[in-house]
Amino acid sequence: MKPPRWFRWRPAAIVLGLAVALALLPPVARISVYTQNQLTLTFVTIAAALAWNWLGGYLGQVSFGHAALFGLGGFVAARLQISAHLPMILAWTAGGLVAGLYALAWGHPTLRLRGPYFSIATIGVGEATRLVCTYWDWFTGGSSGMSLPVTAGLKLQLYWYGIAIALVGVATSYWLRRSPLGMALLAIKSDVDAAGDVGISSVRLQDGVLFLSGLAMGICGAFNASYYSFIEPVETLGFEKSISFVFMGVIGGVGTILGPALGAVVFVLVRQYFIASYPQLYLGLFGVLLVLVILFEPLGLTGLSLRVARRFGYRERPDLST
């Protein structure tokens, strides 16, 4: 079978190689449990940041409510594992599907709004979801949360699943950005009405991307609940969580393929170092970072590294060499 025209072997091989190397780390290099867990958390954060970027970056519809999808996926998966004793992976899938459908339910009407208006609507969705889940005791366990079953060897298993999820996230990002579909998304981002005038169905495409984003977010949230063996509404559904996805996207490079992954790594590292000693400070730090990025390098770390690479004589290939 011939791969599609937009497919490139080299980046695919690099990413796959990296994933295999990471997967071999625990058994071969005997990394500490702490490092292993930090990496697991990074993988799932990467996937979530990428999923946010599909909507916020490729379509320019910046969501401040993606924690709603992350949290809902987590709660549904947790409830299904606790009450219905569903196997973990099945529960994750169900959580993802519910989050995707939920995203469609509020997204189908709100995606007709653009720019700041859409963003404001998502803040409302996020907060409403948090409140409903906080008071919906019998399903979510209310403010005291729910504990999930812990099995032997779970953490190592999650490490590998985390790699797989991040890998799927990267592949989907590549597909959405580089396939002909990606052109249509950028056309919508450039000018939604002009896009319609040449036959691009913005409603269907935006809905589709939001569903994918919700599905991935839900699975990440479900994964997160399994990782902590616990889920409660304040942390998973809070505005802070929603904002964190925006941080990662913007700092890494909105609309790029791997930028948000980079942003996720930075976010996890910085948060880890600061949260213990200065629990409030790290948000302020990210605020400053956000302002600097928007002022000086709208493509974030990706833009910065491209700039450095160009200094050393690198010339990037145009996106579509037809």
């Binding site: 052109m183 950028l186 450039s190 040449v198 169905s201």
Partner: peptide
């Protein structure tokens, strides 16, 4: 359009290719 509305984020070839593909 009377006031031109190109897709600013796409190259020229992408501007026209996306139109062709979207109309099947």
């Amino acid at each position: 359009h009377q006031i031109v509305r190109p897709f600013a984020m796409l190259t020229l070839i992408e501007n026209v290719t996306v139109a062709a593909v979207s109309c099947g």
